[in-house]
Simulated assay, not measured.
Amino acid sequence: MNRRSLLLSLIGSVVPTSTFAQGRRPLRLLVHESVPRLDLLVDAISTSLPFGEIAVAAQEARPAQIVARFSAQANVAELPDLAILPTPDLAVQLANEGRTFPQVLESGFDVPHWRSEVFVLGHDPAVFVTRKGSIAEQDLPRTRLDLARMLEQGGNRFQGRAGIVNVGTDSVAYAIASQDSLRSSMFWRISAAFGASRARIFDTADELLSALSAGTIDFGYNIPITSARSFLRRDSEIEIIVPQDYVLGLPWCGLVPHGVTWPGPVPQAGGLVSLLTSQRVFDAFSEIGLITPQKPSVIENIQMIDPGPELLVFLDPLKRSRFLDLWFGLVVQN
């Protein structure tokens, strides 16, 4: 998917109805940037009501910008009606601060949630990526231990040829890294191995994948599979490696900001988030690579991360500062 501008205007289908003939505005959807096949998702949302299509005005923003929009609630007119956030820690933080509004889902769509305010729409597995033929088949890392050994024992082979996403600036990368560090001490060994290999650090997963596609690097670590699959549609030489030891599944979360009332029809009172949990929308999520509650994962050893107050630990300023200091100390070795 090409990088879009922040504002996308009315990309959902619009069917003239008496509701919109009376001047009701479209539903404002705020999603994180680089959502693959956003048009597919918006179309699914626009047709998710049983009694007709709705107009959807979609905007893209980075997770931090979404959080800022929710936090600046003095200007209600600028708030979205719905938001999709790929970072459960930030979603829980918003709910904990009273920035979200509880929802009641339609019967039959019981998805994981926290306090009926943060709803899991699907999990995005974190994978390894490489370019076909750039690493010999027998040397491809299938586990984190394989990866550490590949970097440590590769000599000059991987100097400047591996890539990672900056966990200090990318909210998704930070969420993945913090959870990865809790599950295995290999995380810090790998971080040090990347540092010794003078790994290239990218601001986003999309930038890393672009470098991989261009041949600038040969390997990428902890990349959301939705981003990888999006690039794979454009470049068949990109190869996804699903780690065999364990796979982290970071949830995309559906949120409704406190204080906003969309004037159009909704599935039921208090259930605006139901527009994100219809079967059509789940099918769209599955198409772009998410593991949804409606479609069990075929990935073995996947560890699903669900929203909860424990995710706030790594958002504590002191904890975050110490984590980043250690990460940069290992990865940036001058």
Rank of each mutant, 00 (worst) to 15 (best):
G155I: 11
W188G: 07
I291H: 07
P112F: 10
Y174E: 08
A228V: 02
L290H: 05
Q138Y: 08
S297M: 03
N75S: 13
M1P: 04
L318E: 11
P86H: 02
P112H: 13
V42T: 07
L290R: 04
P63N: 08
S321A: 02
S274W: 05
R157N: 13
Q59D: 06
L312R: 01
E53L: 03
P251N: 06
I54S: 00
T226D: 02
N166W: 13
P251T: 07
S197T: 10
G108N: 04
P26F: 02
R4T: 11
Q138H: 08
L248E: 09
G133N: 08
E287T: 12
G52S: 01
T19N: 07
S18E: 15
S213F: 04
F285A: 03
R69Y: 01
V67L: 05
F70Y: 05
G264C: 06
S181P: 06
F158I: 04
L326G: 00
F202N: 06
E137N: 05
S286H: 03
A214V: 03
D81P: 02
L10S: 15
F231V: 02
T277V: 09
F158A: 05
V266T: 13
G160Q: 11
S5M: 14
E287Q: 14
R142D: 14
R157Q: 14
Q103I: 12
P267H: 08
R234Y: 09
S210G: 07
P80A: 06
A44I: 13
Q59L: 02
N75Y: 14
L255P: 09
P26Y: 02
A269P: 14
W252C: 10
V298A: 11
N166M: 06
D139M: 09
I84L: 15
I238E: 00
L250D: 01
S321E: 01
G23P: 04
L250I: 14
D170S: 15
Q333D: 03
V172F: 08
D180R: 11
L30T: 08
E97M: 14
K295R: 15
V15A: 06
A64H: 10
H32Y: 13
V92I: 09
A126D: 11
G289P: 02
S184D: 09
L10K: 15
R200K: 14
V256M: 12
L27F: 10
S13P: 13
Q138T: 09
Q138A: 11
I84D: 04
S107M: 11
V42L: 05
A193N: 07
W114A: 06
R144G: 15
L8Q: 11
P263T: 14
V129H: 09
D180G: 06
S178A: 14
P317Q: 01
H32Q: 15
L330T: 00
S286L: 03
L255F: 10
A126M: 15
V67S: 03
L40R: 04
P317C: 00
S107H: 10
A126T: 10
A77T: 08
T277E: 05
D180Q: 11
L7T: 15
V273N: 15
M150A: 14
F194W: 12
L208G: 01
V35F: 01
D39N: 12
V129R: 12
V167F: 06
T143H: 04
A68K: 07
A196T: 07
V256N: 15
R322L: 07
A269Y: 11
S34T: 10
P267T: 08
G168N: 09
E237F: 12
I299L: 13
F202G: 05
A148L: 12
V104N: 10
G133K: 10
G249P: 12
